[in-house]
Amino acid sequence: MRSIAELQNQVRSGSQLRITNHEKDSDETFVNMSLYSGIVEYFPEELVVTLKAGTTINEVNQILGENNQALPFYIDNPDKTIGSLYATSGPEFSDSVLGVQIINGKGELLNFGGQVMKNVAGYDVSRLLVGSMGRLAIVTQISLKILPKKIAVKFQNQPSLKNTKPTLGLYFEQKLKKVFDPYGVFL
């Protein structure tokens, strides 16, 4: 099991890093997040769960299932980690995101959003980074809104394929990449 301090050190000393979940990606150019897993906090009456990024959907489903609750978004493969879904999903996923903890390209540990349903303090970084493909920061921890199982299933349909890119979208994405990763550590 890896620690935050280890991850921060890897970012500070690494020049080019790829975030991964594969055990075989073991040399120093990879940040293997599958080793950073587990449920950080879960109170069923809050409808919120906080997970380390390497936690697999199977693990989450099991513990939520014990309380008749579930993740309210599409999951193509429950062997995936929550961090991997976060990195590759769109608004249907970010609708359920409440907060993230990240390590930016400078190795700083930062928290955005929180463990509450409503939070409009500061820009919504925890939803901005959904779909960022691990190129802006290491996402270490994610807080999600969950729902009772019978309601959550209504939100689990496969979303339409995202294929548009706003004009200038790339331009602003590049600028935002520099905000989080000024030295270009994350490939």
């Binding site: 608004p91 919504d124 901005l128 779909g131 960022s132 995202k162 890119k165 706003p166 004009t167 602003f172």
Partner: peptide
């Protein structure tokens, strides 16, 4: 003066979500 259309159908970063709650600063 640049016009930007942001949609839930876009791929990539959550720029639409970022604009929500940005209090007229962006």
């Amino acid at each position: 003066g640049e016009e930007l259309l942001l949609s839930r159908q876009d791929k990539g970063l959550g720029l639409l979500a970022l604009m929500n709650g940005s209090e007229g600063l962006l």
